Simulated scan of single mutants.
Amino acid sequence: MLVLGIESSCDETGVALYDTDQGLLAHRLYTQMELHALYGGVVPELASRDHIRKLSPLILETLQAGGKQTRDLEGIAYTAGPGLIGALLAGASVARSLAYALKIPAIGVHHMEGHLLAPMLEEDKPQFPFICLLISGGHSMLIRVDGIGRYKLLGDTLDDAAGEAFDKTAKLLDLGYPGGPKVSQLALRGNSERYKFPRPMVDRPGLDMSFSGLKTYTLNTWQAALADDDDTEQTKADICRAFELAVADTLTIKCKRALEQEGLNRLVVSGGVSANREIRSKLDSLMKKRRGEVFYPRLEFCTDNGAMIAYAGAQRLLAGQHNNLNFATTPRWSLEELEPIA
């Protein structure tokens, strides 16, 4: 089954062609990074307009790269939520219209299910069941995965997600947008011994997470440095290093607890923040000590992309699931509400 995948939940327009027999044939991604950098963050209305502008050319480009034409398509998958409502509607409208014109089924995909299943695009695929750590700009979750659509939420973020905390830390240090990669880049030059940041919520039971307090601790540390006229690039680097280590340690401790609680030894890590080198290093060490397995998507599929949506949608379309013409997008949507695939 040849499926076109469309991702437009936030500030990146992703399109991909996935064949259930041959695998991923082609994918293209357009990022709005430069557009939103002017404002220090994503402007929803501008994001929606840019998706409208780029979707049709990207679809044509992806089809050409995969050696296919629109008449070859057998299904279309699009991100239906969570995300920015205008951005979601842009992608959903194009997907539904194209599916109607071609008389083929279409299905709305949960954005986080796309991230969760992204490692399935690799040759070395994780086997069910496993624990998944989903870490992105808006989400930090631990999930037990027993199959596609069979999800049990074990832990969630109570306030700022890990990616959001990275972005806010970058903003208070005036590092620019997008913040997460800039914090990680500067942290490489940081002295890990200078500052010791707290590891939030690791001294209490449970798998929920909270990063707003860590962000506040970072702010207080920076304000103290400013008061001492110590606002150098090295001080910023040292703060970034301490912040990144605190996040990585916290996530590692929570993953260890989840694996022990569920009696599993297979971990999947996905979402935009899963590209972070320090987090990967800590989790690699954890799973090596446990003699377990850890899986990541390739770096280009950590952030939002059409390939993960095409894959997730293809599995559901193959199972006979699809949406009717009265489509709807869902800005807030729990993974546990998804229908399982038998």
Rank of each mutant, 00 (worst) to 15 (best):
V202D: 11
A224R: 15
G149A: 04
A237P: 01
A101W: 02
F197V: 12
G114H: 05
M141W: 05
P181F: 09
Y217F: 15
K125T: 11
E113T: 06
D156F: 03
Q185H: 14
T232A: 05
E113G: 04
A170V: 09
D231R: 09
T218I: 13
A170Y: 09
L116Q: 05
M120V: 04
P205H: 09
K168L: 09
E233V: 12
L116M: 14
D203V: 11
D203F: 14
L188M: 12
S192N: 13
T218Y: 09
R150H: 15
Y177Q: 08
L142A: 14
G155M: 00
R204F: 00
G213V: 07
P105Q: 08
L121D: 14
L172M: 15
D203P: 00
Y195V: 08
V183G: 08
G138W: 11
R144G: 09
G179F: 02
T216N: 07
L173A: 04
E164I: 08
A162L: 08
D160H: 01
G213I: 08
A165L: 05
A187Y: 04
H115D: 10
K103M: 02
A106H: 15
T232Y: 08
T169F: 04
K168T: 10
R150C: 13
D231M: 01
D231T: 07
G206F: 02
D230E: 12
R189Q: 14
Y151F: 05
T235M: 12
Y151T: 02
S140Y: 05
I131A: 10
L134P: 03
Q223M: 12
L121A: 13
R144W: 06
T235F: 00
Q234G: 01
S192V: 15
L158G: 01
E164Q: 13
P129S: 07
G163Y: 05
G206D: 02
G138V: 12
T216L: 04
F128R: 11
R189I: 00
F128N: 03
P178C: 09
T218R: 05
D228P: 00
D146M: 06
R150T: 03
D167V: 01
A187I: 04
L172S: 01
G147V: 07
L116R: 08
G180P: 02
S210D: 11
G206P: 12
E233K: 00
P181S: 04
V145Q: 09
E164R: 11
G206K: 13
H110C: 03
A165E: 10
R150A: 08
P126A: 13
L158F: 02
A99Y: 11
S136V: 04
T235Y: 00
M141D: 13
S192D: 14
T232L: 02
D159H: 01
D124I: 08
E193S: 13
L153G: 07
T221H: 04
K152R: 15
E193H: 10
S140D: 10
Y177G: 07
E123I: 09
E123H: 08
L158N: 01
Y151Q: 07
R144P: 05
Y100M: 13
K125V: 05
G147L: 07
A101P: 03
Y195K: 00
I143H: 00
I135P: 00
H111D: 11
A224H: 14
D167K: 00
P129V: 11
A237Y: 02
L214E: 10
Y195P: 01
L226K: 15
I104K: 11
A99W: 05
I135Q: 02
A227C: 06
V109L: 07
M112C: 07
R189T: 01
S184F: 05
D174A: 12
F211R: 10
I135S: 15
